[in-house]
Amino acid sequence: MKRLKKLIKRLFLLTVVVIVIAGCVLAGSGYKMYRDALNHQGLESKVAEIQSNPSYTTLSEMPELYLDAVVAVEDHRFEQHLGIDLIAIGRAAWNNLTSWSLREGGSTITQQLAKNMYFTQEKSFIRKIAEMFMAFRLESSYTKDEILELYLNSIYFGDGYYCVRDASQGYFGKDPIDMTDYESTLLAGIPNAPSVYSLTANPDLAEQRQQYVIQQMVKYGYISEGEGKKIIAVRG
């Protein structure tokens, strides 16, 4: 019995050591990917590149309700975290382990911006770690408003639209500031899966996603349940 206990203890310690070593290797590889990305193009240069887009839109040119909808559905702890959301990462890690996949990332808005700016959409642990390092760099260099603004001017909305102005003009024929509450909540849900929720490809699925957006807004106190029902009822 004592031998069995010793064997179990040794196996446990060996497993811990292997996990620590693997973690260090992954962290080192992720940091190298992060540094290589910055060496290829500095952060200020990358930001300036996004801001040089003729369609670039400031937060003041977007409806407040649209901004609330994006934060509610994509990263409701956006104002509190420093680039990564440990609660969301823990939940995603558990779901990935139980499903033996990398289908859930737990990414914050800052991480998504980092990925869009520097990395591919490939799902890998090394890329995820590099993305985290870049998220920390973004948070230390820019304000939350600047990060959100850059994010909304660099995400994909489907149908070839890579920023909020192009998407609002393409889908609704108007500038972002002129979007109705209905249009704002509809557009906020698309970047989660642009090919799935594109308004031209799957308008019904886009509306289903919109209902989830509104549920999240109600859940986190951005609007009341009654206001959410009114938005759906108006339909533009």
Rank of each mutant, 00 (worst) to 15 (best):
residue 45 S to R: 15
residue 46 K to Q: 14
residue 46 K to C: 08
residue 46 K to P: 09
residue 50 I to D: 04
residue 51 Q to M: 13
residue 52 S to W: 09
residue 54 P to A: 12
residue 54 P to Y: 12
residue 54 P to I: 14
residue 55 S to T: 15
residue 56 Y to I: 15
residue 57 T to G: 09
residue 57 T to C: 07
residue 57 T to V: 06
residue 57 T to A: 03
residue 58 T to H: 11
residue 59 L to M: 05
residue 60 S to W: 06
residue 60 S to E: 15
residue 60 S to G: 15
residue 61 E to T: 05
residue 61 E to M: 04
residue 61 E to V: 01
residue 61 E to D: 15
residue 61 E to P: 06
residue 63 P to G: 11
residue 63 P to N: 11
residue 64 E to I: 07
residue 65 L to Y: 02
residue 65 L to Q: 10
residue 65 L to A: 03
residue 66 Y to M: 13
residue 68 D to Y: 04
residue 68 D to G: 08
residue 68 D to K: 15
residue 68 D to L: 07
residue 68 D to F: 03
residue 69 A to W: 02
residue 69 A to M: 10
residue 70 V to G: 04
residue 71 V to T: 10
residue 74 E to Q: 12
residue 75 D to Y: 01
residue 79 E to Y: 14
residue 79 E to R: 14
residue 81 H to P: 00
residue 81 H to K: 11
residue 81 H to Q: 13
residue 82 L to D: 14
residue 82 L to E: 14
residue 82 L to M: 10
residue 82 L to V: 08
residue 83 G to E: 06
residue 83 G to C: 07
residue 84 I to A: 01
residue 84 I to P: 00
residue 85 D to V: 11
residue 86 L to Q: 10
residue 86 L to D: 07
residue 87 I to K: 15
residue 87 I to H: 14
residue 88 A to S: 13
residue 89 I to Q: 02
residue 89 I to M: 10
residue 90 G to K: 10
residue 91 R to S: 10
residue 92 A to Q: 02
residue 93 A to P: 13
residue 93 A to Y: 10
residue 94 W to E: 07
residue 95 N to W: 01
residue 96 N to P: 13
residue 96 N to F: 09
residue 97 L to Y: 06
residue 98 T to G: 03
residue 98 T to V: 12
residue 100 W to I: 11
residue 101 S to E: 08
residue 101 S to N: 11
residue 101 S to W: 06
residue 102 L to F: 14
residue 104 E to L: 11
residue 105 G to K: 06
residue 105 G to V: 05
residue 108 T to P: 05
residue 109 I to Y: 00
residue 109 I to P: 01
residue 111 Q to E: 12
residue 111 Q to K: 03
residue 111 Q to V: 08
residue 111 Q to L: 01
residue 112 Q to R: 07
residue 113 L to T: 14
residue 113 L to N: 04
residue 114 A to D: 01
residue 115 K to I: 02
residue 116 N to D: 12
residue 116 N to Y: 08
residue 116 N to S: 13
residue 117 M to K: 03
residue 117 M to L: 09
residue 117 M to C: 04
residue 118 Y to V: 08
residue 119 F to T: 11
residue 119 F to D: 03
residue 120 T to K: 02
residue 121 Q to N: 12
residue 121 Q to Y: 07
residue 123 K to H: 09
residue 124 S to M: 07
residue 125 F to V: 15
residue 127 R to S: 08
residue 127 R to Y: 05
residue 127 R to N: 09
residue 128 K to E: 01
residue 129 I to S: 00
residue 129 I to T: 13
residue 130 A to Y: 00
residue 132 M to G: 12
residue 132 M to F: 03
residue 132 M to V: 15
residue 133 F to H: 05
residue 133 F to D: 01
residue 133 F to C: 04
residue 136 F to L: 11
residue 137 R to S: 11
residue 138 L to A: 07
residue 138 L to Y: 02
residue 138 L to P: 00
residue 138 L to C: 07
residue 139 E to R: 13
residue 139 E to I: 01
residue 139 E to H: 08
residue 140 S to H: 09
residue 140 S to L: 09
residue 141 S to K: 06
residue 142 Y to E: 08
residue 142 Y to H: 05
residue 143 T to V: 02
residue 143 T to F: 06
residue 144 K to Q: 12
residue 145 D to V: 00
residue 145 D to W: 08
residue 146 E to S: 08
residue 146 E to T: 06
residue 147 I to G: 04
residue 147 I to E: 07
residue 147 I to K: 06
residue 149 E to I: 07
residue 150 L to W: 05
residue 151 Y to K: 02
residue 152 L to H: 04
